[in-house]
Design a protein around this nucleic acid. Structure first.
Lengths: 233, 233
DNA sequence: ACCACAGTATGGTCAGACCATACCGAACCA
DNA sequence: TGGTTCGGTATGGTCTGACCATACTGTGGT
C-alpha cells in the first residue's frame, strides 16, 4: 500500500515539452511580437517529435494569444509571435460563463472595480479624451441598442486604455466582450438612455478636469444606473 | 481590382468548427463541470472530421481551463468538463510577460487594485479569516524567502477568496503566480520581514472588525512597503 | 470472497500523404 | 526594358491508419 512517497512521476506530454522549449527560446533569445518561429516541420525535426505534437503546442500558443499562424509563403507566412491577450481572455470568460462556473454578477463587480480604478487613473494622468468624445457622439447617433452598446463599450474601453495599464485594458475589453449580449438587454430594458448620457458626460468632464475622486464616483453611479437590479442595496 | 465588397470569406479551420460545436453543446445541453464529453474518436465520427482536428480543439479547451483529459478507461477517463481558469490565466500572463508585451509594473498595479477591492469586500462581508491566520503562522515559520512568499501568496489569495468573487480570486491567483520569482527577489532585497508581518496583522484585524476602509488602506500601505521602488511618488 | 489475467476503451504519439494557399522566380512575350 | 504568365515550392490545414501506455472491466480460477 505504501509507495514510499514516490509516484510524483506526472507524465509530461510531448506537446508540453514542445511548449516549454518554445517558451525557453522566447525568453532566452528575447523574442518579441513580430518575430517568426520556425516552420512546423522544421521545429518537429529539430525537437525530434512529430508534427502533430508541434501543432498541438501551436494551438495552445495561439489560444493564449501569443502566436498567429498564416499559411502560404513569404515573410508573413508561418507562425509569428503576436500579442493578443484580449481574445484569449474573452474566450476564457465566455466559456466559463457558459459552464456556469462564473456568474454575471461576478463579471459586473469586476468591471465595477476596474472602471473605478481606470477612471481615477485616467483623470490623474490627464489622459487624452478624444476617443471618449468620439464614442460619445457614436452613442448619440446610434439607432439600435446593439449600436449603442457598441459605442458604449468603446467609451468604457477608452477609459481603460487611458489609464495606461495594458493588462487592465485587456481585462476590461474581454469583460465587455463577454457581457455584450447582457448589456444589450440591459439597455433595451432601460429604454431611455438619457441618464446614461448624462453619466458619460460627467465622467468625461471629470477626467478632463483631472478630478480622480469625482471620476471614480461618477463611474460608480453610472453602473448603478445601468444595472439597477444588481445594485439594489 | 474591385472585388465588389466581397472577400469576407475568412476561412474557418476545422478545429474551430469543432470548438463551436462543443461550445454549442455545452450551452444548449447545459453541461457543467464534472460532465463528460464524448471520446475523441467518437466525436470525430459524429462531426465527420479527423481525430487530429478534434484533438486540436481539445487542446484549446484544455488551455482555457474548460476540459481536462484523462487516459485509461472508466468513469474518470476521457475529456471531462472542469473549471480551472487559474492556470489558463497564469499561462497567459507568464507568456505575455516573457514577450515583453506586459510589464511587471502593470501586473503589480493590477494586483494593487484587486487587493484593495478584495480586502474591502472581505471586511464588509465579515468573511471567515481562519485561512488568513493559518497563512500568517506559515510565514512566521518560513525558513527561506521562497517559503515566505509561498505563505504570503496564500494570505493574499485568501483575501481574494474571502471577497466572494471567484473571477477576482482567479485573477489574483494568476497574478501572484506569474510574479512569484519577482516577489522572492523583493523579499530577499528587503531582508527584514517584520514590517510586512505588522502589515498583515493590521489587514487581518481590519477584516475581522469589518472595517472596509481601514482594510483597503492597510493593503495599500503594505504594498508600498513590499515594493518601495514602485511607489516612489 | 478473493485474486490473477485477458480484454478493451481511452488519450498520446507517430509517419506519411494530400490539399489550398501564396510567394518566388524564371521563362516568355511586348 | 518591362510586364506577364506560369510552374516551383514552402507554408499551414487536414486526413488516415497505425501503434503505444494506461487504467478500468469482466471473467475465470482458487
Amino acid at each position: 500500500m505504501d509507495d514510499g512517497g514516490w509516484r510524483p512521476v506526472k507524465r509530461t506530454r510531448t506537446f508540453e515539452d514542445v511548449l516549454a522549449q518554445i517558451e525557453r527560446r522566447i525568453t532566452e533569445d528575447g523574442l518579441t511580437a513580430g518575430d517568426r518561429l520556425p516552420a512546423e516541420r522544421q521545429l518537429a525535426e529539430q525537437l525530434g517529435v512529430s508534427r502533430s505534437s508541434v501543432r498541438e503546442a501551436m494551438r495552445v500558443l495561439e489560444t493564449l494569444g501569443v502566436v498567429s499562424s498564416q499559411v502560404g509563403r513569404g515573410p508573413d507566412a508561418g507562425a509569428v509571435l503576436t500579442s493578443r491577450p484580449d481574445s484569449a481572455l474573452s474566450d476564457l470568460l465566455r466559456l466559463h460563463l457558459g459552464l456556469a462556473s462564473l456568474e454575471m454578477r461576478e463579471v459586473i463587480d469586476t468591471r465595477h472595480m476596474i472602471e473605478q480604478w481606470a477612471a481615477g487613473h485616467a483623470a490623474s494622468a490627464q489622459a487624452d479624451t478624444s476617443a471618449l468624445a468620439a464614442a460619445l457622439s457614436g452613442m448619440d447617433a446610434a439607432k439600435s441598442a446593439e449600436e449603442f452598446v457598441e459605442h458604449d463599450t468603446a467609451f468604457h474601453c477608452a477609459i481603460a486604455d487611458a489609464s495606461g495599464n495594458r493588462l487592465i485594458a485587456a481585462i476590461m475589453r474581454s469583460l465587455r466582450d463577454s457581457m455584450r449580449r447582457y448589456s444589450v438587454e440591459a439597455v433595451q430594458r432601460l429604454g431611455d438612455t438619457s441618464i446614461l448620457r448624462a453619466d458619460h458626460v460627467r465622467i468625461l468632464e471629470a477626467i478632463e478636469r483631472g478630478e480622480a475622486g469625482e471620476a471614480a464616483r461618477a463611474v460608480s453611479e453610472h453602473l448603478a444606473h445601468a444595472y439597477p437590479s444588481l445594485f439594489g442595496h
